[in-house]
Design a protein around this nucleic acid. Structure first.
Lengths: 123, 123
DNA sequence: CTTTTGCTTCGACATCTGTCGATCCCTTGC
DNA sequence: GCAAGGGATCGACAGATGTCGAAGCAAAAG
């Protein structure tokens, strides 16, 4: 189950690194369609849990924009729950993970952050 | 039930209108505390539902930044459900409502939008 | 006052979500 | 090979959430 694909917020295939291509216009530009709302809500929902927000913040603020799970798993819930939330953040396209030897490192997708910021831009 | 107070994202008591005082530092500045995460997650959660996102976008993109419920309630769910979601958005501090005669108007809280944008600022 | 219209609240219900302990998988070290 | 440790998955379960129809409430119209 859960074959949810990461959000194609940004076309990373050959776009220059600085070019942020948001999935949707700013919230205040025009009413969202059902599909736009569905995609975008997934990101907001991912950050709509306190534990996930702490995990995301911990990764985002860690040096190099990445952190080992062992460095950030002190958020008051059990280890399986931490893993569960990190998975959710990955499915939302906000984090990526990579195993390096014993440890697994999570890193933020800065372009996605920027795209979300543009969603909130005031008209 | 549901005596949830609006988020004190911005001290509106006597601050100048342009001064955005976010509740929390940018997500990537330092790891969020439990309390910061709790408060901030409430906002993201409010936008983490497709119907609410459409309603919010409809209000935000409406001229004058406000809209009558009758103008935006065509989002594919029943009218009580629309009312339910608008209430949630109000409780999250993202919208305010005001009755003027027959109709009820909802309007966005622009400072809250700006504060959320700052949360997503890249370090 | 009665009716109509716009919106909220209530009650009920199915589904989703967060949480945990137990277990499994993968890598390293012996 | 085997043991140890980091991390993911599984199964279960209580509580939260989205949804609706019915009923209630407030303002305007007749």
């Amino acid at each position: 189950m859960s074959n949810v694909r990461a959000l194609p917020l940004l076309d990373r295939s050959e776009a220059p690194a600085a070019a942020v291509v948001p999935c949707c216009p700013p919230l205040s530009e025009r009413p969202f369609t059902a599909e736009e709302a569905e995609r975008t809500a997934r990101m907001f929902k991912a950050l709509g849990d306190p534990v996930r927000l702490r995990l995301f913040s911990a990764v985002a603020s860690h040096e190099g924009g990445e952190a080992c799970v062992c460095d950030i798993s002190d958020v008051g819930v059990s280890q399986p729950t931490v893993s569960h939330h990190l998975k959710k953040l990955k499915e939302a396209g906000l984090l990526t993970s990579e195993r390096r030897g014993t440890w697994v490192y999570y890193r933020v997708e800065p372009s996605v952050l920027a795209a979300m910021g543009q969603l909130l831009a005031v008209r």
